[in-house]
Write a protein that binds this DNA or RNA. Structure first.
Length: 905
DNA sequence: ATACCGCATGGAC
DNA sequence: AGTCCATGCGGTA
C-alpha cells in the first residue's frame, strides 16, 4: 500500500495497488492518503478494509509485522493502512491499539512522522468494529468507544468529508465535547448489550462521572471485544439497525463546535480524554489547541471544519446533552444539527438532510429508496423515517421522509413553549416560524448507536454565527435582529414580554438553562433602538417594542452575549404602541393614537404612555387634548408613517383602517405579500432567514409551505379565510408592501439620479429626491386613470419625480431594478404576479379609499401639511413598485401602462 | 381536486 | 465552476 500516485478520483482502478479491479460508480473509501483524500477502493478491497483484514490480506508477506506486547496479537506496522493500528512503547515494542487504549497509557505514536500521522487512517481494528456496525445495517451492534489516538492529531489537515466514511469512528468526539462532569459512561462492554437504554434514557438514573469516563472511555475497548460485540449482539429491534459512525474527521470541528452557543457559560472543562492525547506535542495540538477546541471554536485555520458546514455543527449545550442523557448511562454523541427550513417544517413531510451529514452519520444507502431509519426523539418516542436520496445533479439529495408526525409532535412542543411567552397569543402565525427557528438535532446514543433527534432552539449566538457564516448578502444584521429573529428567546420571555427568571421552557425538549443563568435574575428587556424597532417583524419583537421601564425607574444596561439589555428590578410596563418619528426640525417625536377617537397626537419622544391612552391625557398639547380636536397628522402622512412605525402600533392603526375591508379585494394578497418579500430580498434583516438558504419564507409568506400549518393537516387557507394566520398575513402584507415599495422607490430614485446625472441638463437635478408634494407628474396628459384617481396621482407623482426620462429611455430595460424587484431568476413571472397582485392590492386600496371608511388614503399630499413628516415622507411613494411593474411589463398590464411623463417629455 | 412522489431548478456558497 | 440544498413543479395515484 504505498501507491500514492494514483489519482483516487480520476482512476477507475481500485487504489489498492495489488488489486486491479475497477471501482464501482461510487467507490468506497479506504485509508487517508497524504493528499488528504481517502483511497478509493473497489468493493472487495473496501470490504476487506472495512473488516480490518486489509493488512492480513494484502500485506501478509510484507515486512513490518510485529506482536503486541500485551496480547500477543500480530499487528502490521509497516504501511499507511496500519499506521494507527498500534502504539509504540517507550521501552520498545508495540501495543495493538486496543491494548494501548485499554491500558490508557499511550497517546499516538509520537515518533510517527507528522505526515504519517495525518495521512493515515484508522486502525483496522477500529474500522473493523465500526464497519461491523455499518455493515450490520439491520443488526445494530453496539457502537462502542472507538477512538484512535491519532484522531486527536487535529493539527493535521483534514480534507473534505468524504462521501462515506463509515468506519472512521470517533465516539469520543462526542464525549469529548461534554464536560467531563457531565459525561456519561459506558459502564462496561457487557453493558453495551443492554437493550433497555431507551427506557433508561428517559427514566434511568445512571449518572456518569469523570472517573467513569476515564475508566471506561479512556481505557478504551478491546477491539476484539468490540468486534465480538458487534458480531454477536443480537439484533435489537428497538434500536436503529445500524451502528452509526462519526467520522474521525469531525474531531476537530466536533470539539470545536461543541458549546459554541454556550461559550460564555460553559464551565471550564476538566481535563478530558482528548487532552491526554492532545498533550502530546507531537500531535501538533498543544494546550492552546486544546483551548481552541474547548472554547467552542474551531481552529482558526479551519482544519477540520470543511467536512461539515458550520451551520450543521452540533451546538448542543451541556444542558441539552444532560437533559437527553441525564437518566441513561449512554453516551450521547452530537452528530449534527440543522435549522429547519420551511420545507422541512412544512407539510410535505420531507426533511432535507445535509448531504455530508447524511453520508457521514446515517447508514449508507445505495438505492434511492433508501431504508427505514428509526429515530428516537428526546422524549423517548420512536419514529421511523425513510432515509433515502434523490439523484440530483450527479449527486444525491438526502431526505428523511415521513417526518410529518414527528414534526407535528415537535410543533406542539413549540407551542408549549410559546404558551410561556408573549408569543403565545401570536402562535398561529408564529407556529411555523417557531419551527423554522428551531434546530433539529441529531445525536447518537452509545451504546447502541441509536439515533436521537431533538429540537434545539436556535440561540442568538448560533443564529448570529449562522448568519455570519452565511455572510448574508444583504449584510443587514443587527444584534437586535439576530436576537429578535430568534424565537428561541421567546421562552425567555414571560407573559409580559420580559425575560423572566423562570421562564425558560421546562416543556422544551431540551431546556437551556444556560441562557437563563446568563441573563441573571432580574427582568430584562432587550434594548432596541427605535430605528430597529420599526424594522421589527416578529411578534416577540413587537412585544419588545411595547415594553417600557417601570415608572421612575432607570434601567441598568447590561450586556449579555453581545446584546444590551435593560435590567429592571420591578415589573416592566406595557406601553402604548406609538410611532416614533423625527419632525422637520430634527426633533424626535412620537405619534400616539387615542383610544377613543383614534386620532393621532404628537408627543415628545420620551413619553411613555400607558396602554390605554386618550386625547384627554394629552398634556403635552393642550390644544389637542380633546377628541374633538382635529388630527395634526394628515392621513397620508400617517400612511407614510406606516412602514416606519412600530408594527404593533401600525397593526392597530391598520385594523382601524381596515375594519370594513372587503376581503375579496385581498385576492392575490398572499401572492403579493410573498412577492413583496421576494422583492425585499436583500433588504430584510438576515436574521429573518431561518437558514442561510432560506431567503423566501418570512412572516407573511404565503407559499404553500408557509400558509399551511407546520407539517399540518387540515384545510388550506383560502383567500377568504379569516383565521388568525390569514388575518395576520394580511395585516403584515401592507407593511411589507409599503416598506418594500418605499425602499424600491428610493433605490430607483437613486439609480435614476445616477443615470441621469452625467447627461442631464440642470433641470433634471431638480427632480431628484422630491418630496411627496412633488406634483410634476400630475399634469401628465397621457396618464391613464385605471384604478382610481388616487392611485394615478400617487403613481404619476412618483414616476415623474424619479424617472423623468421615461419618454426617452427604454424603461423595460432596467436590469438593476429587475434585479431588485426579483432576486429570483424568474423575474418575468414574478413580476407578472407582482403586478397582478399589486393591481389587486391597489384596487383594494381604492375601494377602501372611496368607501369613505378612512381618510387615510389621501391621494395627494397637500403642500405644507404635515411638514414634520416631510422628512419621513421624502420622495417615497407607496406606488413605486406598482409603477415599476408597469414599466417593466407594460404589455402585460396595458391597463396600467404609463405614457412618458411630461417631466422630461 | 388533492396528495404524493420524484426530479429539476436555481440561488447561495 | 462545482456543489449543496431549498423548494418549485410536473406527473401520477
Amino acid at each position: 500500500m504505498t501507491s500514492t500516485s494514483v489519482a483516487t478520483s480520476s482512476s477507475r482502478i481500485c487504489f489498492n495497488s495489488v488489486c486491479n479491479d475497477l471501482k464501482s460508480e461510487r467507490p468506497r473509501k479506504g485509508w487517508r492518503l497524504r493528499t488528504g483524500e481517502l483511497a478509493e477502493l473497489c468493493d472487495r478491497c473496501a470490504s476487506i478494509y472495512d473488516e480490518g483484514r486489509f493488512c492480513d490480506t494484502f500485506h501478509l508477506n510484507a515486512s513490518g509485522w510485529r506482536t503486541c506486547e500485551s496480547c500477543g496479537k500480530r499487528v502490521h506496522c509497516g504501511c499507511i493502512v496500519s499506521a494507527y493500528a498500534f502504539a509504540l512503547l517507550d521501552a520498545g515494542g508495540i501495543l495493538c491499539i486496543a491494548c494501548s487504549r485499554k491500558n490508557a497509557v499511550l497517546g499516538p505514536n509520537s515518533s510517527w512522522p507528522p505526515s504519517l500521522l495525518f495521512n493515515s487512517s484508522l486502525p483496522e481494528r477500529f474500522k473493523d468494529c465500526s464497519a461491523k456496525g455499518w455493515s450490520q445495517l439491520t443488526g445494530s451492534g453496539p457502537a462502542p468507544w472507538r477512538q484512535a489516538p491519532g484522531l486527536f492529531n487535529s493539527s493535521t489537515p483534514q480534507p473534505e468529508l468524504h462521501s462515506r466514511v463509515p468506519y472512521e469512528v470517533d465516539l469520543s468526539t462526542g464525549i469529548d465535547r461534554l464536560n467531563v462532569s457531565e459525561r456519561l459512561s459506558i459502564p462496561s462492554l457487557e453493558k453495551k448489550k443492554n437493550e433497555d437504554f431507551p427506557e433508561r434514557l428517559m427514566n434511568g438514573s445512571l449518572k456518569p462521572s469523570a472517573h467513569d469516563i476515564h475508566e471506561n472511555g479512556n481505557t478504551g475497548i478491546n477491539c476484539e471485544e468490540q468486534h465480538t460485540s458487534c458480531l454477536t449482539k443480537p439484533q435489537d429491534s428497538s434500536n436503529p439497525p445500524f451502528g452509526l459512525a462519526v467520522p474521525y474527521t469531525s474531531i476537530d470541528e466536533a470539539n470545536g463546535q461543541m458549546g459554541v452557543s454556550g461559550t460564555p457559560l460553559r464551565p471550564n472543562p476538566q481535563p478530558s480524554l482528548a487532552k491526554q492525547f492532545h498533550s502530546n506535542p507531537h500531535n501538533g495540538l498543544d494546550s492552546s489547541g486544546e483551548t481552541q477546541m474547548r472554547n467552542g471554536r474551531p481552529r482558526p485555520d479551519g482544519r477540520g471544519r470543511n467536512q461539515l458546514f458550520p451551520r450543521y455543527w452540533p451546538r448542543f449545550t451541556d444542558q441539552d446533552l444532560q437533559q437527553i442523557s441525564a437518566d441513561s448511562n449512554c453516551i450521547i454523541t452530537p452528530l449534527f444539527e440543522k435549522m429547519l427550513s420551511a420545507s422541512d417544517a412544512g407539510r410535505i413531510g420531507r426533511l432535507v438532510l445535509p448531504k455530508k451529514c447524511a453520508e457521514a452519520y446515517f447508514p449508507p444507502i445505495s438505492q434511492p429508496e433508501g431504508l427505514p431509519l428509526k429515530v428516537q426523539d428526546s422524549k423517548g418516542k420512536e419514529w421511523i423515517f425513510q432515509f433515502r436520496f434523490w439523484p440530483n445533479n450527479n449527486s444525491r439529495m438526502y431526505v428523511l421522509e415521513g417526518v410529518t408526525p414527528c414534526i407535528q409532535n415537535m410543533q406542539l412542543q413549540a407551542g408549549d413553549v410559546g404558551s410561556d411567552s408573549v408569543a403565545c397569543c401570536l402562535l398561529p402565525v408564529a407556529a411555523l416560524f417557531i419551527l423554522l427557528f428551531r434546530n433539529l438535532t441529531f445525536s447518537r446514543l452509545e451504546p447502541g448507536g441509536k439515533l436521537v433527534m431533538g429540537f434545539r432552539k436556535a440561540s442568538a449566538a448560533s443564529a448570529s454565527e449562522q448568519e455570519n457564516e452565511a455572510k448574508n448578502s444583504n449584510g443587514v444584521s443587527t444584534h437586535g435582529d439576530a436576537e429578535l429573529a430568534d424565537p428561541s428567546s421567546w421562552s425567555k420571555v414571560d407573559k409580559s414580554g420580559y425575560i423572566a427568571k423562570e421562564a425558560l421552557g421546562t416543556k422544551v425538549a431540551v431546556p437551556r438553562k444556560r441562557k437563563n443563568s446568563v441573563l441573571g435574575s432580574k427582568s430584562k428587556r432587550l434594548r432596541i433602538d427605535n430605528e430597529d424597532m420599526i424594522e421589527l417583524k416578529l411578534t416577540w419583537e413587537e412585544a419588545q417594542g411595547l415594553l417600557r421601564p417601570p415608572p421612575n425607574h432607570v434601567a441598568n444596561v447590561v450586556s449579555i452575549e453581545g446584546f444590551e439589555f435593560e435590567e429592571y428590578g420591578d415589573a416592566p410596563v406595557l406601553g402604548k404602541p406609538t410611532i416614533f418619528a423625527t419632525d422637520k426640525s430634527g426633533e424626535k417625536i412620537q405619534w400616539a393614537q387615542c383610544e377613543d377617537c383614534f386620532k393621532w397626537r404628537r408627543l415628545p419622544s420620551d413619553v411613555l404612555l400607558p396602554s390605554k391612552w386618550t386625547c384627554s391625557s394629552n398634556s403635552w398639547d393642550p390644544e389637542r387634548s380633546s377628541c374633538s380636536a382635529t388630527q395634526e397628522l394628515t392621513a397620508e402622512e400617517l400612511e407614510n408613517l406606516l412602514p416606519h412605525c412600530n408594527p404593533a402600533a401600525s397593526k392597530k392603526m391598520k385594523v382601524a383602517k381596515q375594519e370594513s375591508e372587503n376581503v375579496d379585494a385581498l385576492e392575490g394578497l398572499d401572492t403579493l405579500a410573498n412577492l413583496a418579500i421576494l422583492g425585499e430580498g436583500g433588504v430584510l434583516p438576515a436574521s429573518s432567514q431561518a437558514t442561510t438558504k432560506h431567503p423566501r419564507h418570512r412572516p407573511g409568506c404565503s407559499c404553500i409551505v408557509c400558509i399551511q400549518p407546520p407539517s399540518g393537516k387540515g384545510p388550506k387557507h383560502k383567500q377568504t379565510c379569516t383565521c388568525n394566520v390569514c388575518q395576520t398575513v394580511k395585516r403584515r402584507f401592507r407593511t411589507l408592501m409599503l416598506r418594500r415599495e418605499k425602499k424600491q422607490s428610493q433605490k430607483e430614485a437613486d439609480a435614476t439620479r445616477k443615470k441621469q446625472q452625467p447627461s442631464l441638463p440642470d433641470k433634471v437635478v431638480d427632480d431628484e429626491p422630491l418630496p411627496c408634494t412633488t406634483s410634476a407628474g400630475n399634469s401628465s396628459p397621457n396618464q391613464k386613470k385605471v384604478v382610481s384617481e388616487n392611485l394615478d396621482d400617487d403613481t404619476n407623482r412618483l414616476k415623474s419625480s424619479s424617472s423623468p426620462f421615461k419618454g426617452q429611455i427604454d424603461l423595460n430595460i432596467q436590469p438593476e431594478r429587475e434585479e431588485e424587484l426579483s432576486p429570483g431568476s424568474d423575474s418575468g413571472g414574478t413580476m407578472r404576479l407582482l403586478q397582478d397582485a399589486t393591481d389587486k392590492y391597489h384596487r383594494q386600496q381604492s375601494i377602501l379609499s372611496s368607501s369613505g371608511n378612512s381618510n387615510i388614503e389621501v391621494t395627494q399630499t397637500q403642500p405644507g401639511s404635515g411638514t414634520e413628516l416631510e422628512k419621513i415622507n421624502s420622495s417615497i411613494d407607496l406606488r413605486a413598485s406598482h409603477r415599476d411593474a408597469d414599466m417593466d411589463h407594460p404589455a402585460i398590464f396595458p391597463i396600467k401602462t404609463f405614457a412618458p411623463t411630461s417631466a422630461t417629455g
